[in-house]
Structures are given as C-alpha cells and as structure tokens.
Amino acid sequence: MTEYKLVVVGAGGVGKSALTIQLIQNHFVDEYDPTIEDSYRKQVVIDGETCLLDILDTAGQEEYSAMRDQYMRTGEGFLCVFAINNTKSFEDIHHYREQIKRVKDSEDVPMVLVGNKCDLPSRTVDTKQAQDLARSYGIPFIETSAKTRQGVDDAFYTLVREIRKHKEKMSKDGKKKKKKSKTKCVIM
C-alpha cells in the first residue's frame, strides 16, 4: 500500500485542523484551538488504489514558523489553505509557496490551493482571484467548507493525484537520464 505524506499549511484560523478532522473523523470542530502540530493517518481508496494518507496539520501562528522547514522537508505534497473571508490569509499563500519551493529546492512541488469556509456569506476573496492565482502557479484550486464537508475529500484526493503525477514524471525523467548515460565512448 502506497503511503502519501501530505502537509496542510496556511495562516492561523483558516480551518486547516477543521478540514483535516472532517476528512479523518467526519465531524466539524467549530471551536478554535490553535494547533502546534498534529499528525493523522487514514486509509482510503483513490482511483481504485488503496493508500495510506499521513497528514500533518501544522501551526499557522507566526511564533511556530521555525518548525516549518522541518515538516516541509518531509512532506510530499501540500494543501495551501486560505479562508475566503480573510484576504490576508490569501496573500500569505505566496509566502508559504515560496518557502516550500526553497526548502524542497524545487520549482515543481505537488500543491493544491484550497479556499476554505465557502459556506460563509462574508467572502472577501473572489473565486476568480483564487483561480487566477492557482493557474499562475500551475496547481489545482478547490473551494471547501469544513463545516458542510463540501470539497473536503476532493481537496485531499486531488493532492494525492498531483503527487502521483509528480512521481510518474520524475521516474520518466530518471529513465531518460539513465538511457543517456548508457551511451559509451570508444577510443581507438
């Protein structure tokens, strides 16, 4: 069974824990209790493949930012979460993405942009803004509501699919490099 290491990042209060708990335990946590770091595991079937999701729910508070490099190193894919009623959390996505790329030393890291709290009427981040940002990053965008469960499975499952595509691409690139290195030079 394939294991996928997913990391949920975003500013404090955007609903990272609520999304994760909704996926794992099928219930909505409405009281806000700032996370330092929590880890969850769940076995699911995605596109006919049974897999184990190892999900790291991270601290959004700035005082825990020193811990970010460590979990970013171990993560295979990242859910970059903002709240649709919090423009600052949307603007912060850029910083999370840049930090992930720096730590992973790669421009090509599996990510999904997630606009959470889409059940709320007080939207300050337009869907088109988020779609445009995701398009500019070359990553999928999904709106979710941890409260109603809308888009929750889709967000995590899409990230797994992005990781699969990335692994497939990397193995193809690896095979191309191996083929090239088999060419021999004969000096007579």
Rank of each mutant, 00 (worst) to 15 (best):
P121N: 12
R123N: 12
V9E: 03
G10I: 01
N116V: 15
R68Q: 14
T2F: 10
D126M: 06
I36P: 00
V9S: 04
T2Y: 14
K169I: 06
A11I: 13
N86H: 04
Y137Q: 03
R161N: 13
C80Y: 07
T35Q: 00
D47C: 07
K167L: 06
G151M: 11
T74W: 08
R68C: 14
I21P: 00
Y40M: 00
T158E: 05
T50K: 13
V109F: 11
I24N: 15
K16Q: 05
V112S: 01
Y157V: 11
A146I: 01
R149E: 02
K175A: 12
A11T: 13
K16M: 01
V45Q: 15
G75W: 02
G115M: 12
V112G: 00
C118Y: 10
Y96T: 07
V109L: 06
T58P: 00
F28I: 01
A134S: 10
A18K: 03
C185K: 15
T74A: 12
C185T: 15
M170S: 14
L79C: 06
Q99L: 14
Q131N: 11
E63M: 03
I187Y: 14
A155H: 15
T50D: 09
G151A: 07
H166P: 03
L113Q: 06
I46W: 10
I46E: 14
C51R: 09
R73L: 07
M188C: 09
I139S: 05
K128E: 06
K101S: 13
T58Q: 01
K182C: 03
N86L: 02
G60D: 01
S181A: 10
G60C: 01
I163M: 11
G60A: 02
L79S: 00
D38T: 00
V29C: 10
T124F: 06
E76I: 12
C80M: 08
D119L: 12
K42I: 11
L52W: 14
L56E: 15
N26Y: 04
E37K: 01
D30H: 14
E76G: 03
Y64V: 06
P121H: 10
R161H: 02
G13K: 05
K180A: 09
R164P: 02
Y64G: 09
L120Q: 06
K184G: 07
R123T: 11
Q129N: 06
T50P: 13
V186H: 13
L120T: 10
S39R: 02
K42W: 04
G138T: 03
E162V: 03
